[in-house]
């Protein structure tokens, strides 16, 4: 069947993505750690404006977020690109493969757009705008070691983004070890040309960015831009609550996916023309955890509880267990 090359392409893309994923996810987690360290809280609704207080961490987090959304020219793009290419190539196959490819494409692209929503919300709510609480306003910058770690990973993201063709070799070796030489050759053959073109395109993109930035400087002509407050319609007393919240940012999407998310919304019932107090809160519990993992865990725990009589705290019996296990192993090996 002529499908092996496609499968090799898609699988190789997945492996490449796993590799790159490690790099940018690590960077993002480190960024989260830097925020937690600096502001003392990891709650998005309590943060904001941290870009002014920890500029380098903010820059690197945005870079990591861009990589996580698989945006060119960062490293997240190459792997997803190959998976997409595999799915598109599969469109020329038999009908059931086409349906599978259709499903894969729809899910992949929707997930990609959702990722963009998620990461722009995360980066925006945490680092941009005005601080929403005192904790955020008083956040301190992270130390040079923290910054160094993030910089290292960020540099790796950028380099592996531009140098994706060089990563073909390790990935195809891994494929060969698992599936045989044929797969290695299929993968490197199919992936090489597009990835090389991509690197050329990334370089072109970088060049265009540089040209436009220079042109902008030319337009500014050495004039100093004026500074002012964000447009607040001329209101005399703006406050930090007047910026978009993190939850509000994703509200249209969470409302659409409500049947899947099963979010609990405690909506205030504002009755009467002159209401008193009202408050709103929402809670999103993990549906998969509640309905899939939790029952299984509960059952397993129940089963394990039956054997809790083994744990009675007497050291002598624990030593006896070890001796008994060793004797059993000895007998088995004889």
């Amino acid at each position: 069947m002529g499908l092996y090359p496609l499968a090799a392409l898609a699988f190789g893309g997945a492996l490449l993505h796993v590799l790159n994923h490690a790099l940018f996810k690590g960077l993002l987690f480190m960024g989260a750690g830097a925020v937690l360290h600096g502001a003392g809280t990891a709650e998005m609704e309590a943060l904001g404006g941290l870009s002014k207080r920890m500029p380098r961490a903010a820059f690197l987090f945005v870079l990591g977020a861009a990589a996580a959304c698989a945006l060119p020219p960062f490293n997240g793009f190459a792997g997803e690109f190959l998976i997409y290419l595999g799915a598109f190539s599969a469109l020329n196959g038999p009908a059931n493969i086409v349906l599978a490819a259709l499903l894969a494409l729809a899910v992949l692209s929707a997930a990609g757009a959702l990722a963009l929503a998620v990461f722009s919300k995360a980066a925006g709510a945490v680092f941009l705008g005005e601080p929403r609480t005192q904790a955020a306003a008083g956040a301190h910058n992270c130390g040079p070691l923290m910054n160094a770690g993030m910089t290292l990973l960020a540099a790796a993201c950028v380099v592996s983004g531009f140098a994706a063709p060089f990563l073909i070799l390790p990935v195809s070796t891994a494929l060969g070890a698992a599936f045989g030489l044929r797969t290695t050759l299929d993968f490197s053959g199919a992936a090489a040309t597009p990835l090389i073109y991509l690197t050329a395109a990334f370089l072109a993109l970088a060049a265009i960015v540089w040209v436009l930035a220079e042109k902008r400087r030319f337009f500014l002509g050495g004039r100093q831009p004026a500074a002012g407050p964000t447009w607040d319609c001329g209101y005399a007393a703006p406050s930090a609550r007047m910026q978009y919240g993190a939850s509000s940012f994703s509200q249209p999407l969470t409302a659409f996916f409500q049947p899947l998310l099963r979010k609990t919304l405690n909506i205030p019932v504002i009755a009467g023309y002159f209401p008193g107090k009202a408050s709103f809160s929402s809670e999103a519990r993990s549906v998969v955890f509640d309905h899939l993992y939790a029952p299984v865990i509960v059952r397993l725990r129940g089963l394990a509880f039956r054997f809790s009589w083994l744990q009675h705290g007497r050291l002598q019996f624990y030593i006896l267990y070890i001796v008994a296990a060793l004797m059993a192993l000895l007998l088995w090996k004889l």
Partner: peptide, 12 residues
């Protein structure tokens, strides 16, 4: 409306 998830939009 109290709650950290509520934001205010001020127009004008």
């Amino acid at each position: 409306v109290h709650g950290s998830e509520v934001h205010e939009v001020a127009v004008g």
